[in-house]
């Protein structure tokens, strides 16, 4: 049984880490982009960003004033038990979100869509989002917080099989250029692409591809991994860099996730996880042990399974 107070305390620490500490994989990716960038203004911007990450860590202040819309991804093993059950878990995550908004401080971004009511704590109807995943075996819980920016860089298009890769490429470029101008997408970004599913799952897949996979990771399907590399290069050859200035750093990495879709369709979503790619992860064990990391490791073979049954014994052997 995992103690609920440890979950809440860990969640508060994660909120702080996500807002302040740029994940190492993103930092390495941005440094690599800065090394090859030769546009005057773009280079200046990337250097300023690198200094900004340092300043944030030194001062323990949020790296960006727009601290996004905090959300939670929660993953559990099949044998995980939480003190107080799922209702207590959700209450702990809402409390941690509110406390950290005041504590770090974060910007209280969340308001009612019509009445603009602001509780000044990033908690409200449906906020923060809490999404769940499960893995065979294990008694741990993974808490993942992502504070993605909320206004620009994301789009959806219903494509059809006849549109082919050429149609996918077109929408990818359209999205990058539309939101890249003036740097609205706060690029260079981790670009997540969702392909297939239904409209809602397509958006979910793309967002998770952007937020829950690290820079340098690859899809387990080698042909999709090839497409990811190709799209990263394509995005960086538009001629556009940071803030929409002339340059070559648009995409720190491109991650693609797929889901089975309607036979007549090929849904596509594009998401940009910005210069402040805020994510933090911790695994909490029943004995109260907490391990912090920055890789959500969300897309396991189990999450990408395509068969009716899951071969449990093989999974245990692999562990």
């Amino acid at each position: 049984m995992i103690p609920i107070d440890i979950i809440q305390k860990t969640a508060e620490t994660l909120m702080d880490k996500a807002a302040i500490e740029i994940p190492q994989d993103y930092l390495d990716g941005l440094q690599a982009a800065a090394d090859v960038e030769d546009g005057d203004l773009s280079s200046f911007v990337l250097q300023a960003m690198l200094e900004n990450y340092e300043a944030a860590k030194e001062d323990r202040r949020a790296m960006c004033g727009d601290t996004g819309t905090p959300r939670w991804y929660v993953k559990m093993g099949n044998d995980t038990r939480i003190e107080g059950g799922p209702i207590a878990l959700e209450a702990a995550l809402r409390r941690a979100t509110a406390n950290a908004t005041n504590g770090v401080p974060l910007r209280p971004n969340r308001v009612h869509p019509l009445w603009r009511t602001d509780h000044n704590n990033n908690v409200g109807i449906g906020a923060p989002e809490i999404e769940y995943g499960y893995e065979p075996g294990g008694e741990w819980i993974d808490l993942i917080t992502v504070h993605k920016g909320g206004l620009f860089g994301t789009d959806y298009r219903m494509l059809f099989p006849s549109d082919g890769i050429e149609g996918i490429r077109r929408f990818y470029l359209d999205s990058l250029i539309a939101f890249g101008k003036r740097g609205l997408a706060c690029q260079p970004a981790i670009i997540g692409i969702g392909l297939g599913g239904c409209k809602d799952t397509c958006m979910v897949l793309g967002k998770r591809a952007a937020c829950l996979r690290t820079v340098g990771s690859e899809n387990s399907d080698p042909k999709i991994a090839q497409l990811e590399r190709e799209f990263k290069e394509l995005g960086n050859s538009i001629g556009m860099g940071a803030m929409g200035f002339v340059g070559k750093s648009m995409v720190v990495d491109c991650n693609i996730e797929v889901g089975y879709c309607h036979t007549g369709g090929m849904q596509m979503s594009v998401h940009a996880f910005c210069l402040s790619s805020r994510r933090a992860v911790a695994r909490v064990f029943p004995d109260g042990r907490v391990e912090y990391r920055t890789d959500p490791d969300w897309f396991t073979d189990y999450q990408r399974r395509e068969t009716v049954e899951w071969d449990a014994p093989a999974m245990e052997a692999a562990e």
Binding site: A48, N52, A56, A62, C64, G183, C186, A242
Partner: peptide, 8 residues
């Protein structure tokens, strides 16, 4: 600049 230089 960059839109993310909030700490600076």
């Amino acid at each position: 600049v960059g839109y993310g230089t909030g700490a600076l």
